[in-house]
Design a protein around this nucleic acid. Structure first.
Length: 162
DNA sequence: GCCAACGTTGGC
DNA sequence: GCCAACGTTGGC
């Protein structure tokens, strides 16, 4: 685990109809590989900056309402995303191969599921989250950095709803 | 289902 | 290297 001072925080988006935090909870060891990211900026975060021990906010996009629903932790650092060269996979990339993986994934393990999801529109009214990437107009990154204070603010909000 | 925002592709 | 066309994301 990296030193506390270097621990980073992230937000990962997933459509719950595709993979929800409840699905993560049902995985063996509550751990899964985070495959299917097909955006270079998001890949670079996973490849270059995510470290084991980093903490993650789990976000449900396309949900009603869209919301942060819990936490997870990075348990394995970036490695090739084998789904990229699987023609039967919905995220198949014809240019990827074992010799040229192009895309990367990490492994994450469930932290906890919040008792109450924190809906996107409720986060918009929190002053401490004013600059959060998730709340930026047109923000589409599926892997995005979160500041330590933003992460802690979100945890406090989740705690206040217990 | 609409559409704004954004990333990627490819002609030039 | 520009930029129009196109595809995707994702809130609403």
């Amino acid at each position: 685990m990296s030193p506390q001072s270097q621990k980073k925080y992230w937000l990962l988006k997933s459509e719950p109809s595709s993979f929800s935090i409840q699905d993560l909870a049902a995985c063996p060891k509550q751990t899964t590989f985070w495959s299917g990211v097909r955006n270079y900026q998001a890949r670079n975060f996973m490849r270059d900056e995510m470290r084991a021990g980093d903490e993650v906010l789990f976000y449900h996009s396309g949900a009603e309402p869209p919301a942060i629903v819990g936490t997870a932790a990075v348990v394995r650092e970036g490695y090739p995303d084998h789904t990229a060269w699987d023609p039967s996979d919905s995220h198949y990339d014809v240019k990827a191969s074992p010799d040229n993986p192009i895309w990367q994934m990490v492994d994450i393990k469930l932290g906890r599921i919040f008792d109450e999801p924190l809906p996107l529109d409720s986060l918009r009214s929190v002053a401490a989250l004013r600059n959060m990437e998730l709340l930026r107009r047109g923000s589409r990154l599926s892997v995005q950095p979160v500041s330590r204070s933003e992460f802690e603010t979100v945890l406090r909000l989740a705690e206040s709803k217990r």
